[in-house]
Design a protein around this nucleic acid. Structure first.
Length: 469
RNA sequence: GGCCCCAUCGUCUAGAGGCCCAGGACACGGCCCUCUCAAGGCUGAAACACGGGUUCGAAUCCCGUUGGGGCCA
């Protein structure tokens, strides 16, 4: 039955969209699209102190940037837990009525003391269940679990995982103050949204048996589960801020292309033979939750940047131009019109891993060099260098047409006439025009810059070379 | 501490008992190309955590150990 697939991504809006969350969202989305099912976005904002509307906006933006569209969810009403409190209350009441849940008035201080005592005896603390059957009508609501037996979670990634009921507490569904707990909300939400497959982080696997028991107590069918491994930092610990950028937004700001991010995240813990690069349709077609790895994966920014580079190389200047604009502005630069910008970017795409790098590498296109690389300046801007710049200035002034092939011919002729190597004049010119020793092919750069600009830069360089000596 | 998950090159992974003295990719080294830097081509180094089983045969199955992660607190 592949037609009833309904999956969800349920972030807590307590911050940016984390790459781990993004990957979970992606796997859900791919699963839904592969099976022609529905992808639902739900906001788990019961932690009001840390959940903000601003964060919801951030997460929504990040998902949109990644191209993960949802079939149900915000801005439509009813997809935020704070809007669903009645549902939780209603289901809690049903469990009480069915005798599957009971109230407990054990003071937290006493439970805490028992916990400490158990710890001192090196034992595992488990709530005793002493309030069960007392017929209380107030307090914390607990789900009565079977005292013996096991619950098996049939996980699509990890296989069957068995949990012994003796290890499980009668867990709290609703706190004494009336607020439902996270795990209970999740069950009620998944049930009422008719979720068929729960694809989420590995960190929820341990809570799953309790949830399964809750589904059963409620008389609902249990969905299929797939627990995706966590994303790790270089030290194999949970990926956190101290490892560097962890939010999707941060990579977006670095100028990583969204399709690269998606491709990278997809390949992190999932694979399809030896294939590394996937188009979105390929991803949808080939994705199978069963092929997702059960082990944790280290986030490798270098590989992400390699993919970003691959996608940048594959994009033409016209596509890149609008994407680069914000990065130009950020660098305090103003670019030319789209057509011209596109032409410039053509020479940059093989040399930049990110959009931001593109601006750095091509900076000279947008402003005259503010300085020359020191070392090169010392060896190239010599009296002889100044003289050669003078000759170049003179020749270039009358060159017709001012195109890359013509410029190259001029350089080759002149090089031979002066008994030099092409590299000698090329590097001298490169430094003069770009301020650096590395750039896109020189003759293309000169042609793109145009004669007036080239001459102006050569003159400035000649002056600088003259002042050195 | 108890329970749960995980374990192939530095990293992401292929591998579902013989095709593997382990393949691909990133990163790294070398060579080629070349006006520089890239890109590209070729090439090199680099792994089955350990110990027991099962089997004619194990990276692949089982058990244990170690290590890492998670949940409960």
């Amino acid at each position: 039955m592949t037609d009833g697939v309904r999956v969800r991504f349920a972030p807590s809006p307590t911050g940016h969209l984390h790459v781990g969350g993004a990957r979970t969202a992606l796997f859900n989305w791919l699963f839904a699209r592969h099976h022609g099912g529905a992808f639902i976005l739900r906001i788990e904002d019961t932690d009001r102190s840390r959940s903000t509307d601003e964060n919801i906006g951030l997460i929504v933006d990040a998902l949109r940037w990644l191209g993960l569209d949802w079939d149900e969810g915000p801005p439509a009403p009813g997809y935020r837990q704070t809007e669903r409190l009645d549902l939780y209350r209603e289901h809690a009441a049903r469990l009480v009525a069915a005798g599957r849940a009971y109230y407990c008035d054990c003071p937290p201080a006493r439970l805490e003391a028992e916990r400490k005592a158990a710890e001192a005896r090196k034992e595992t603390f488990r709530y005793s269940g002493r309030c069960r059957g007392r017929g209380l009508t107030a307090g914390a609501l607990r789900l009565g679990l079977p005292a013996a037996g096991t619950t098996v979670v049939h996980d699509l990634i990890n296989g069957p995982v068995e949990f012994d009921h003796r290890q499980l507490d009668d867990w709290i569904l609703v706190r004494t103050d009336g607020t439902p707990t996270y795990n209970f909300c999740v069950v009620v939400d998944d049930v009422t949204m008719r979720i068929s497959h729960v694809i989420r982080g590995n960190d929820h696997l341990s809570n799953t048996p309790k949830q399964v028991l809750c589904y059963e107590a409620l008389g609902y069918p249990v969905p299929a589960f797939a627990h995706v491994s966590m994303i790790l930092g270089p030290d194999r610990g949970r990926l956190s801020k101290r490892h560097g950028a962890t939010s999707v937004q941060a990579y977006r700001e670095q100028g990583v292309l969204p399709e690269a991010m998606v491709n990278y995240l997809a390949r992190l813990g999932w694979s399809h033979g030896d294939q590394e690069i996937f188009t979105r349709p390929e991803l949808i077609e080939r994705f199978d939750i069963k092929d997702v790895s059960a082990s944790g994966a280290v986030f490798d920014q270098t590989k992400l940047e390699w993919l970003s580079h691959e996608y940048i190389k594959a994009s033409d200047g016209a596509r890149l131009a609008p994407l680069v604009r914000p990065f130009l502005a950020e660098a305090g630069l103003t670019g030319p019109d789209d057509a011209r910008l596109a032409a410039l970017l053509e020479t940059l795409r093989e040399r930049a891993r990110t959009l931001r790098e593109m601006v750095e590498v091509g900076r000279f296109y947008f402003e005259r060099p503010a300085a020359y690389e020191d070392k090169a300046r010392a060896t190239l801007f010599t009296p002889a260098g100044a003289e050669r710049l003078g000759i170049l200035l003179e020749r270039l002034e009358s060159l017709e047409p001012f195109t890359a092939p013509a410029i190259e011919a001029l350089y080759r002729d002149l090089t031979a006439a002066l008994g030099l190597k092409l590299v000698d004049l090329a590097q001298l010119t490169r430094l003069a025009v770009t301020g650096r020793t590395a750039s896109p092919p020189l003759f293309d750069v000169l042609a793109l810059l145009g004669r007036p600009e080239v001459l102006a830069r050569l003159r400035a360089a000649r002056a600088a070379a003259g002042s050195v000596s």
